[in-house]
Design a protein around this nucleic acid. Structure first.
Length: 543
RNA sequence: AGCGAGGUAGGGUAGCCUGGAGUACCCGUCGGGCUCAUAACCCGAAGACCGGAGGUCCAAAUCCUCCCCUCGCUACCA
């Protein structure tokens, strides 16, 4: 399984995180709990115009800048307890090999076309300028914020020739002329029917309606050849004579990075996953990225005839948006993955973000919404249930000692089944909902059975004692199961809870059937805390 | 503009594929219970013309058509 490769231009914001890496990591943790042979591949997408431009402006080599950014982002994901099998990057020898392999096969198989077009050329820097290297005044809003592809101010799409008073983003001068230049294009149109067949077949495997329909409609409208070379410097050089000054276009090598990164992880085993007909490839990505994964990239794989696996499931997310808070616009300002950790710990963000996961529709991030999830769902319902069960058990050891297991409890079993079912269908919001359901079950038992009353009678009445032991056993089983089910969403809290039951290793679903003994000597500590005025104040700084 | 997806109590969501009394969850509001626990938890109530207008059907939030609003894509951002 993979998560969309973050384009490492700045610190990812919370919307980026919840769109692909986080749900992917959550799902991966579930697969590991289940015991599947799964690997989770992700990494930094390092090529492309924005990074080359930033490197030129900073006066550093693009590979150096890209590696620095890669290190920063990698470190951040670790702080959020993401456990990739490998978090790599696209500018590697391995990815170059994979990219050239696919490129050469497409070329040999007759899917590559040479065509000519007009492109901007800076007479001062003596180089061609891709659209983003052209800046100037927007013909629509007349702000000096237009680029060759789009205006940053009004968001309208532009042609480079439409930009008024264009200047070169590198030297700032206006000495630009348009020259005829050649490029290689990938004839996607030749693979249309194979792509359609692939989407129709695999689209049944839990893809969103949105992903299937927009992919099919794009094919229906007719695919066109798409450029795969760029007249710039940063990237993999095109391995063809006559193209010495060109690099492979980032969209072409970035998704091949999934394979390249796997090869970087393990030079022997990568083929076992990627060239194996039994592999089920599950890919997490945001809605802006869908057709790259359902059309452009599969076309590369199909056209290469190298027997690479195609996406089995496309797990597309919508966007998490915020009207009241600034999600990073770029440049690391606003509420992003870094600044968020200054407010709350990783478990809180993981759980809260998954609780508001924009699974089927855009979802709204609000300060109040976050507060509610942290304070009510995590703290009051889940954390406090564990605390009241463990404390009551500790102060009534004679009723709580002995082995417990979630195996024989019908209510717990039912919820666990629903949890598994939700995950297996990739319904992640439903999955996190079942965790809350389990806590609700515990809280309801507490209220209806009132074990704190029973313990007083249990010492005198053997019948009551037996009854009370059963209730304790059930409550402890629920708490133990909570510790396991919580793992994908809040791994740290899960570990803390499971420690009371003597579990120190990574949890598995099999453990639910094990018999465990609660440690009634240890003083239970709350696994979650509420957000206080201090955290809310910090959050409001981003309003 | 074209294509795709969304619009559900005051707020936030699930339900829609596979039609069956507006069903459910969280917050907020109102009333009650409980005192084990982190002032938490539990029970009950009020609150929705399911974006709008038509249509199909014994029956529509769900299927069809048109319109309005929001988001995404439209091939040189990735």
């Amino acid at each position: 399984m993979t998560s969309a490769l973050p384009y490492v231009y700045s610190v990812p914001h919370l919307g980026n995180f919840v769109g692909s890496v986080l749900p992917a990591d959550v799902y991966f943790k579930y697969l590991k709990m289940k015991g599947d042979d799964a690997i989770f591949i992700c990494g930094s997408d390092q090529h492309g115009t924005p990074i080359e431009l930033a490197a030129i402006k900073k006066g550093v080599e693009p590979d150096k800048l890209a590696d620095e950014l890669h290190a920063t982002v990698k470190n951040l994901f670790e702080k959020y307890h993401c456990t990739f099998t490998h978090y790599g990057k696209t500018h590697t020898e391995e990815n170059r090999e994979v990219t050239y392999g696919v490129f050469n096969e497409l070329y040999n198989n007759g899917y590559i076309l040479e065509r000519e077009d007009m492109q901007a050329y800076c007479n001062i820097d003596k180089r061609f300028l891709t659209d983003r290297f052209i800046q100037g005044t927007c013909p629509y809003c007349h702000k000096r914020s237009a680029r060759g592809d789009q205006c940053d101010n009004c968001g309208r799409l532009l042609e480079p020739t439409q930009v008024i008073d264009p200047f070169c983003a590198i030297c700032g001068k206006s000495d630009i002329t348009f020259k005829k230049t050649k490029n290689l294009a990938f004839e996607l149109n030749k693979l249309q029917s194979e792509l359609k067949e692939f989407i129709k077949k695999n689209g049944k495997h839990n893809w969103s309606k949105d992903a299937v329909n927009k992919s099919l409609s794009m094919i229906k409208e007719g695919l066109k050849p798409r450029d795969i070379t760029r007249n710039m410097k940063w990237g993999f050089p095109v391995p063809l004579t006559g193209y010495e000054n060109y690099v492979i276009y980032v969209w072409f090598d970035a998704p091949l990075g999934y394979i390249g990164i796997t090869k970087e992880w393990n030079s022997k085993r990568w083929r076992d996953y990627w060239q194996n007909e039994h592999t089920q490839l599950v890919q997490f990505l945001g809605k802006d990225n869908t057709t790259f994964h359902t059309i452009f990239w599969p076309a590369e794989l199909i056209g290469s005839r190298l027997g690479f696996v195609l996406p089995f499931t496309i797990k597309e997310s919508q966007f998490l948006v915020s009207k009241q808070l600034k999600f990073s616009k770029s440049q690391g300002v606003g509420l992003n993955m870094r600044t968020a950790l200054e407010i709350l710990g990783a478990d809180y963000w993981r759980f809260a973000l998954m609780y508001m996961y924009p699974e089927n529709a855009d979802s709204e991030f609000t300060e109040h919404g976050l507060e509610e999830i942290v304070n009510v769902i995590m703290n009051d319902k889940i954390g406090n249930l564990a605390q009241r069960v463990l404390k009551l058990s500790k102060s009534n050891k004679f009723l709580a000692e002995g082995e417990v297991s979630a195996k024989d409890d019908a209510n717990v079993k039912k919820i666990v089944k629903e949890y598994r079912n939700a995950f297996d269908k990739l319904q992640l919001k439903r999955a996190i909902g079942t965790v809350v359901k389990l806590a609700d079950l515990g809280n309801r038992i507490m209220s209806s059975k009132e074990p704190w009353t029973l313990v007083k009678k249990a010492r005198e009445d053997a019948k009551v004692e037996k009854q009370t032991r059963k209730i304790f056993s059930e409550l402890l089983a629920i708490t133990y199961a909570l510790g396991i089910l919580l793992y994908p969403f809040a791994p740290k809290a899960s570990a803390e809870l499971l420690a009371y039951f003597g579990i120190k290793s990574e949890p598995t679903l099999e453990m639910l059937d094990q018999k465990v003994k609660p440690n009634l000597e240890a003083e239970p500590k709350p696994i979650f805390q509420k957000m206080t005025g201090k955290e809310i104040e910090k959050l409001q700084k981003y309003a």
